[in-house]
């Protein structure tokens, strides 16, 4: 017997790389998701700083692609879309802000208070207000999911909380920032100085024009806080992390490490005793944590299953969208 698919209406708030990636992934995967999971995903609202478009019956591909058809933010804000357009899941993909979490924080609170589930790739609100947001979601009987916020396409949050449920988690450590991994990998391979490789990374779009959040370890620290809170039930903020970045790493150091059988990687580590640390570390060349390029990796130390290592693409619009789609599907399965 064929049951009628369940319609899941979503809004996408923040329509840049990730938001656009979600629209693209929905376009490509819609039929397959309906067939395999019995849910029909409809995008009913999109909003960013340029404006908003909405259609309660589902936006056409055309409408999504044409920013000119949008209403100006003065007429309809992203909050209006979240509150007033009927839908089930709000996808939050505005820029990460670790000072006060905005605008993501307000978006998420508004969505939960309007009884919508939330799926987000935005790290700021989670790193600053994790327990408050989780409590609000629980009170409303809604889900707040954020697989895309840590490790991009690499599954880690649901892997630990769902697939490894029953295991005690002793520690998680890994490479959570692809930009730093790229820079250190290139420096080691080519014997080039940091400044040189950074410039190269900026030219090909792997590093931002202001790279400080990545290279100073801030981005890794924020992800570590999210892991600490979600996996270890801690109540940490960015202030609790001991952070050292990669800006002082020299080609000489990489060469000496290489001679001794190691690579240098920026490693984020959280253990169940509450230690949160981001620092360049020596990784043995034959260790599973030794992955190159922009890849992310994490080793989860568990009491029953032993060590489990996951490797994946940490960034990229479609990769982040993959994690977001999985979160949406999981809400309904």
């Amino acid at each position: 017997m064929k049951t009628k698919p369940k319609t899941v209406r979503i809004s996408i708030i923040g329509f840049g790389n990730v938001g656009g990636g979600v629209a693209e992934a929905v376009r490509r995967k819609r039929e397959e998701i309906e067939r395999r999971h019995g849910i029909d995903i409809k995008i009913v609202g999109i909003a960013d700083l340029k404006g908003a478009i909405v259609n309660e019956n589902g936006l056409s591909e055309d409408a999504i692609m044409k920013p000119k058809t949008r209403r100006k933010p003065e007429d309809m804000t992203s909050r209006d879309v979240i509150k007033e357009i009927e839908h089930e899941v709000m996808v939050e993909a505005t820029p990460t802000n670790v000072e006060n979490g905005e605008p993501g924080l307000t978006h998420i609170i508004t969505a939960l208070e309007s009884d919508r589930h939330v799926v987000t790739s935005n790290k700021g609100p989670l790193a600053l207000e994790y327990s408050r947001l989780m409590e609000l979601a629980a009170k409303r009987g809604k889900e707040l999911r954020f697989e895309a916020a840590v490790g991009g396409a690499m599954p880690i949050i649901s892997l630990v909380r769902e697939n490894l449920a029953g295991n005690g988690i002793i520690s998680i450590k890994g490479i959570l920032n692809g930009t730093c991994n790229y820079i250190l990998t290139r420096m080691a391979e080519e014997g080039l100085p940091y400044e040189h490789v950074l410039k190269e990374a900026q030219e090909i779009g792997i590093a931002e024009s202001d790279p400080s959040k990545d290279v100073e370890g801030i981005d890794t620290a924020v992800k570590l806080v999210i892991l600490a809170n979600s996996v270890f039930d801690m109540n940490m903020t960015y202030e609790d992390v001991e952070v050292t970045g990669i800006t002082d790493i020299t080609p000489d150091a990489l060469k000496l490490a290489n001679d001794a059988g190691y690579m240098i990687k920026l490693i984020g580590e959280v253990d169940r005793a509450g230690g949160l640390k981001v620092a360049p570390r020596l990784v043995p060349k034959d260790d599973p944590l030794n992955v190159g390029g922009t890849l992310n990796v994490a080793t989860i130390k568990t009491d029953l299953a032993g060590d489990i290592t996951v490797i994946g693409k940490g960034a990229g619009p479609i990769e982040a969208a993959s994690a977001i789609l999985s979160d949406i599907i999981r809400i309904y399965s």
């Binding site: 000489d252 150091a253 000496l256 001679d259 001794a260």
Partner: peptide, 17 residues
């Protein structure tokens, strides 16, 4: 202890066992 010494007043690196 292996030491690498770049130009004067640049930082050096050492690997220590």
């Amino acid at each position: 202890l292996s030491l690498s010494m770049p130009a004067v007043d640049k930082k050096s690196a050492a690997s220590v066992t």
